[in-house]
């Protein structure tokens, strides 16, 4: 179980491709900073081919700052900083895509 942290908008498509190519079943993705824009519904297609076992999260501080609170896709669970820390504990390693 790996937590993948990604902090760039979908403009950095190759970064998303590299991350998606590195996923295993039961991994989690957490979008942070400009990565939060990846949680806009318009970008659902990036994540649509993932298995159901992969969980998708986005960081609340980053969605709120960017005007995304009402615009986050239903594919994502919005989490706070405490849950961010918990995710890093629940997964055995963390891979940062930046």
């Amino acid at each position: 179980m790996t937590l993948h942290l990604l902090n760039k908008s979908p403009q950095s498509m190759s970064l998303y491709s590299n991350m998606l190519a590195s996923l295993s079943d039961n991994d989690s993705i957490l979008l942070i900073e400009d990565g939060a824009y990846g949680a806009l519904s318009a970008h659902n297609k990036i994540f649509k081919s993932l298995p159901d076992t992969v969980s998708l999260f986005v960081l609340r501080a980053d969605t709120e700052a960017r005007g995304l609170s009402e615009r986050v896709s239903a594919l994502f669970e919005v989490i706070d900083d405490n849950q961010f820390v918990e995710l890093t504990c629940q997964n055995v390693k963390v891979v940062s895509w930046y």
Partner: peptide, 9 residues
């Protein structure tokens, strides 16, 4: 990724 303990990028 699974086979290694720590991953750096």
């Amino acid at each position: 990724i699974q086979q290694h303990d720590t991953v750096l990028t």
